[in-house]
Design a protein around this nucleic acid. Structure first.
Length: 848
RNA sequence: GCGGGUGUGGCGGAAUGGUAGACGCGGCAGACUCAAAAUCUGCUUCUGCAAGGAGUGUCGGUUCGAGUCCGACCACCCGUACCA
């Protein structure tokens, strides 16, 4: 066997796997299936180490499950729509489509050398008309099912780029690209009715037992359930049609602490007043300026305008409260109107202080006198407080009890009703962008909004567009908008908005089960392959992507595109950490920071000897130049080394720091395994090491421990066990057949992580067929138990000695042996033993 | 502010309440070599010549026994933020 040369063996085995069709997912009802999926990449053009780590994790699981006898689905595709392609077109000319497909070709070319067990026959990109056409078909079904609707909504509008921005794209009140102050605008947009599913999406989190608690908690907080009272104030002096003002509160027990009412600047009453009162118009405009008035939020300034309207307290019609328009009241939560209780809400307190409103106390901490407050007293829900202005139930109770009692009392008195509210808002999917899935609806002057006919799908994006003017090229295309109304046959115009790219990624996992079906999914394929058994991706998708996908699977079920069993599409979720690297920084003559690539730095200096400042490990980023190109690593060490490194050392959920020495060490270790394999039978005659039995036992233990490590996503521990096993074999003095067997097993255990070298070793040591198709080794249970055990002896909890005894020695015997041990005798120094604890097979503790 | 998480050698990290530091990096020493690299062998928590002593962010508690469980605190990281 020649030297370890990855450049030679890796392409060879990749070709062999390809030719044998090892990774083609087969719908085989006779076998259990396993669907492993990594979050598909955006085709930026280059893969990075994060991709390598992410896909290697999935690959380890996929290869392990395949060896266990599962029929494995492990696909790959491209999340290909989105702004970067348009930005590239704007900046460098060219077409988003060309840019995207050329990037996909580049990235596929970079991924293939990694030797991933991917079924490439299922590959697709979300910008393929074949894919987005099916997405449009589902849009029409969901529209018909009432899951999609149109409404006017306030949006973040970038006046320079002339598009709507998502909240995440607004930074300090400015557009992330244009840097122009963002405006609030009312636009008519399409929405998914995700809020219909708030309760269900929340409740079903409990069933996702194989998801990280962290992600479940983040989703629960995002959905934001609260229980409270909704009731109507009777207004006094309000315009016609506004004689009642609905408010929502989670603390109805504080109703007697009311001191004002406040409505959102976007509340219908505010809008009405705005039209008739210039002072109101000016105030409302001030609130809307600068996005969600980011400045006011940052300074926490509570601003209001007294409308002159009052409302009557529901308990006392002689008690009037002023109605303000206030900048801190949100239109899209509750009813867009509140009653203010300054004593027990910090915002209300600040507002009341600013505008000189009273601060009546409702309750005080148990055993404390009522006194003027310096800030709002907001107790924990479970904290017991004494009510001085309570109206329901006991005088001393917890918030939870008081709220429930207050809701009951109010309902009994005909004041409002108990209501459950959610923070989750409907998902606006319209984007004024070109490079996205066209929304398949038509606007007809006579018929209004009309869905496109399914036989006319896909509604294709036109290729002849330009990006020299800001805004949506579809809007100004000379002919694309023109179409025929599906209802009346008259001339009509297409919708020029496209879908949020989160729609594309909300169902791709289902499409992989039948990527070329002429319907969005195929019932038989979806029934066999769904759900995704193991989903792997970054925690940055913990809320949006995963929540949207959970909603979408339900919507797909409702429209007949997924079975009921697939409404929670991801059985298990794993969120992996990032690959990080040190940052190397110097400064130029003007004192500006200059960053340097890792390969430019040696021993803390640049090549010209200039010392660099080393900033500790951080996420790899192009701007900081702390990146390592996987292609360079593969060229230098091979794919197996890159794969081995990213799986070792750090637990997969944590960040791993890429270091040159670590990569080199991985390479050296693989070389050591290689030479171990080639030198079997060449042991020196006088060599004394573990013999046949020891090697057999070590092999059984390795099988057990590595399997367990892979199953529990403890890849770093599995790799540590493989090091240990290798070290044992390295020193072994076993007979050739035993060693060959052991090394073959070693190859199999390593194969999920480093499949190429494993294949070579397997082949060299006479393994049958391809290692990638060999069944996973089983540990011989008889070899896993040792005949003798080593027991540490503690004296008063400190380890002082150890004994080696037969495994089945009775405790009474063990006691005798332990007490007779010379070190024990010495430490006891004749003192009586107060207590003797023998934990069989574990430890002995002598208490004196 | 609120919610969650994490603190273990020089570093990444192991450890069902039962021998703290597996495994790897780095370091030191030795072998091979004219020499170096590569490779191999050994050592490597701190302190101490040793016996021993100390030790898992800090303080306290439960236990025969605590990195692990409980309470308080400190530090850092992540998420989220006017949600009534």
């Amino acid at each position: 066997m020649s030297r370890y040369d990855p450049a030679q063996i890796e392409p060879k085995w990749q070709k062999a796997w390809d030719e044998a069709g090892v990774f083609v997912a087969r719908h085989d009802p006779a076998r259990p299936k396993y669907y492993v999926l990594e979050m598909f990449p955006y085709p930026s053009g280059r893969i990075h180490m994060g991709h390598v780590r992410n896909y290697t994790m999935g690959d380890v699981v996929a290869r392990y499950k395949a060896a266990q006898g599962f029929s494995v689905l492990h696909p790959m595709g491209w999340d290909a729509f989105g702004m970067p392609a348009e930005n590239a077109a704007i900046e460098r000319g060219g077409h988003p489509k060309d840019w995207t497909y050329s990037n996909i070709a580049d990235m596929r070319g970079q991924m293939k050398p990694l030797g991933l067990s991917i079924d490439w026959s299922r590959e697709f990109a979300t910008c393929d008309p074949e894919y987005y056409g099916q997405q449009q078909a589902m849009f029409l079904d969901m529209l018909a099912a009432g899951l999609i609707y149109r409404k006017a909504a306030m949006v973040n509008w970038d006046p320079v780029d002339m598009t709507v921005l998502a909240n995440e794209q607004v930074i300090d009140g400015k557009g992330w690209r244009s840097n122009a102050p963002v405006e609030r605008r009312e636009l008519t947009q399409w929405f998914f009715k995700i809020s219909d599913y708030s309760g269900e999406l929340l409740a079903a989190l409990d069933g996702l037992t194989h998801w990280p608690d962290k992600v479940r908690l983040m989703q629960a907080n995002w959905i934001g359930k609260s229980r409270g009272l909704q009731f109507a104030f009777t207004t006094h002096g309000a315009p016609e049609g506004f004689d009642r003002l609905e408010v929502y509160t989670t603390r109805p027990d504080t109703l007697l602490g009311a001191s004002f009412a406040a409505i959102s600047p976007d509340h219908p009453l505010a809008k009405h007043l705005e039209r008739h009162d210039p002072k109101v118009a000016a105030f409302v405009a001030q609130c809307r300026r600068g996005g969600t008035s980011a400045e006011a939020i940052e300074t926490g300034e509570k601003l209001g305008l007294d409308t002159g309207i009052t409302v009557l307290h529901p308990f006392d019609n002689d008690w009037q409260l002023p109605v303000y328009i206030a900048n801190f009241v949100l239109m899209d939560y509750g009813t867009g109107a509140i009653f203010g209780c300054p004593a027990h809400d910090q915002r209300d307190f600040e507002f009341a202080t600013r505008y000189g409103l009273p601060v009546p106390t409702v309750f005080v901490p148990e055993g404390v006198e009522d006194a003027p407050l310096a800030e709002a007293f907001v107790p924990m829900k479970s904290e017991r407080v004494s009510y001085v202005r309570g109206f329901a139930g006991d005088r001393v109770q917890t918030g939870d009890e008081a709220v429930t009692a207050a809701i009951d009392t109010c309902e009994a008195r005909g004041i409002g009703r108990g209501v459950t509210n959610y923070r989750l808002r409907d998902w606006g999917l319209s984007r004024q962008r070109y490079w996205g899935c066209p929304i398949p609806v038509i606007h007809c002057a006579d018929c209004g909004v009309v869905p496109e006919k399914k036989e006319n799908l896909p509604v294709r994006l036109p290729d002849d567009v330009t990006f020299d003017i800001p805004g949506n090229p579809l809007d100004r295309h000379p002919t694309w908008r023109n179409c025929v109304c599906p209802a009346c046959g008259g001339a009509a115009r297409r919708e020029t908005d496209t879908m949020d790219t989160f729609v594309d990624s909300s169902w791709y996992y289902a499409r992989f089960t039948a990527p070329h079906a002429t319907t969005p999914t195929n019932a038989a394929e979806a029934a066999y392959w769904m759900n995704v058994d193991q989903y792997i991706g970054g925690v940055e998708h913990a809320i949006l992507h995963l929540l949207y996908s959970r909603f979408f699977a339900r919507a797909m079920h409702k429209t007949g595109h997924l079975p009921a069993s697939a409404i929670e599409p991801f059985n298990a979720l794993f969120t992996q950490g990032m690959v990080t690297h040190e940052i190397y920084k110097t400064t130029d003559a003007a004192g500006r920071p200059v960053y340097h690539l890792p390969e430019e730095v040696e021993d803390g200096r640049l090549r010209d000897g200039k010392p660099v400042e080393i900033i500790p490990s951080a996420k790899m980023s192009k701007s900081k130049k702390n990146v390592v190109d996987p292609m360079h690593i593969i060229a230098q060490f091979g794919a197996d080394t890159a794969r081995w490194f990213v799986m070792s050392d750090s637990p997969p959920e944590r960040d791993v720091e890429w270091t040159a020495s670590g990569a080199e060490a991985s390479f050296k270790h693989l070389g050591r395994v290689w030479s171990l394999c080639s030198r079997i039978g060449e042991m020196a005659a006088d060599h004394v090491g573990p013999g046949d039995d020891d090697v057999r036992r070590a092999t059984a233990r390795a099988v057990q421990e590595v399997s367990h490590g892979i199953e529990t996503f403890a890849f770093n521990k599995a790799i540590a066990k493989l090091y240990e096993f290798t070290n044992t074999l390295w020193k072994a003095d076993a007979s050739t057949p035993v060693m060959k067997e052991a090394v073959r097993t070693l190859a199999q255990l390593m194969a999920p992580m480093v499949p190429h070298i494993a294949e070579s070793i397997w082949n060299y040591q006479g393994g049958a067929g391809l290692c990638a198709q060999a069944p996973w080794p089983k540990a011989d249970a008889a070899l896993l138990v040792d005949d003798t055990v080593t027991l540490p002896i503690q004296i008063n909890g400190k380890r002082r000695a150890e004994i080696s005894v037969p495994k089945d020695m009775p405790a009474s015997e063990v006691e005798k042996v332990a007490l007779a041990h010379e070190d024990v005798v010495r430490f006891l120094a004749g003192q009586p033993v107060k207590k003797l604890i023998v934990v069989p097979g574990r430890i002995i503790n002598v208490v004196i």
